[in-house]
Amino acid sequence: MIRSTFLRGLAFGLLWWILAEGRLDGWLLGGVAVAAATWTSLKLQPPGKLPMRLAGLVRFLRFFLWNSLRGGFQVAAMALRGRAALRPGIIELRVMLPPGEARILLVNALGLMPGTLGVDLNDTSLRLHVLDDSLPVVAETRALETSIAGLFGEAP
């Protein structure tokens, strides 16, 4: 409890420092804001129940950033070539991830990954729109699922 209060307070303090652009003249207001934010955060998400793993978070962020970079390059090249570059289609896949946050993150994150866009999600399957169905979109989706599973500590 003391440890997570300290760590969260530190994180909110850093956030305040960034928002105040490094100035220290507003520290009184900042201190109140940091204390309020820390208290709210402890109320809403009590320590010890944090659903994510730090190592998984780092790996997920690296995966996500790299693939959104690839996705941006790919779609920019397609845009410059026009609709002749497209071979769009809808595909349906079985979802491997358990219901809940992991699935919501998956279907949303797909929109920034190369060639894929989440369209619908139900109890068992995921509908995707793909820009080019000859690209390895299924493998990309599975890789994202593995990364998200690691984030929530459900790695196989």
């Binding site: 279907v107 949303n108 619908d120 999600l121 139900n122």
Partner: peptide, 8 residues
């Protein structure tokens, strides 16, 4: 997105 998902 959450609304869309909950309706799903």
């Amino acid at each position: 997105a959450k609304r869309a998902w909950q309706r799903t």
